[in-house]
Design a protein around this nucleic acid. Structure first.
Lengths: 151, 151
DNA sequence: GCAATTTAGTTAGCATAGCTAACTATATTC
DNA sequence: GAATATAGTTAGCTATGCTAACTAAATTGC
């Protein structure tokens, strides 16, 4: 039962969807960055920290760079900032080249607070939607995550 | 830890949705930045340029800053880069304080090419979805845009 | 067992992009 | 005409991204 509409998505509509998605992502992050600044921890730092806290424990710098889709030198500096702030501990492994990066207690706490503050206004905006819209949006996110993994 | 929080709080699901949305936006832009770099024009420059090209013509720096949700000094430097690259023309108005920012022909062309390249892989990833999913996604971007405007 | 290579991270140096504070220049108001 | 308000720019800080070049440790090869 479909779909005159879907058949016409020859690329033009898909392109427009992609473009609007890109634009939406830019503006979303610009707004949320305001909240990020209050915590004194940058967005990339928070994102990396969240991998350590929520992503199943300690890991090496290379793994973290991989997870965050940045180059090792970039992650090295992000981690340096986190270590300086006392949010991450840089430990040793049997392989003397690798480091073992783990969130400290403070790091875990800061992350939770930071996440909360950061997405607070977003969650509030979401609350203003109808249950139906919000449910749809939740579905959208899942599709979005799928798409991003395939990028 | 993540489970405890999202299950316990009223609005926990909404919070989780917000959090995942934020994370998705970060990772989406990181992937697309790779494509951006090929054009030699940064993402903020492209975004500003798109306002001039697609947003209905020339405007002042302050209006551009407003549209892009950044502070005037930030927009001043973004525009400086665009002017240096010959993509934007900085003209005069009757009000000697205001500038009139307009995309050049080259700027218009570069924007179209840049948008295309940037969003190409995303559009491709979207093409991999089923017609149904893609249709749903397209609808829900509108909800997303609504939410962001309310941020 | 030691030289050569590979691997993990760091350091150095460059660019974009965000901010606030302070400045210049033009308009407006009193 | 002086005081004030507005539009942009400049200067200086931070955070993030990159590549290239370096150090240190592990592995490979002879």
């Amino acid at each position: 039962m479909t779909d005159v509409k879907s058949k016409r998505l020859a690329g033009g509509e898909t392109f427009e969807t992609a473009d609007r998605l890109h634009s939406a992502a830019i503006h979303l992050l610009r707004r949320l960055r305001v909240r990020d600044r209050e915590s004194g921890v940058g967005p990339s730092q928070l994102s990396a920290l969240s991998v350590l806290v929520l992503g199943g424990g300690p890991r090496s710098l290379g793994e973290l760079a991989e997870a965050e889709q940045v180059r090792p030198p970039t992650m090295s500096r992000i981690v340096a900032g986190l270590v300086r702030a006392g949010l991450v501990h840089r430990g040793k492994t049997e392989d003397g080249r690798r480091v073992r990066l783990a969130a400290t207690a403070k790091g875990t706490r800061i992350l939770q607070e930071g996440r909360l503050r950061r997405v607070e206004s977003l969650a509030q905006a979401l609350s203003a939607l109808s249950n139906e819209d919000r449910e749809k949006l939740r579905e959208l996110i899942e599709h979005l995550e799928k798409v991003i993994r395939n990028l």
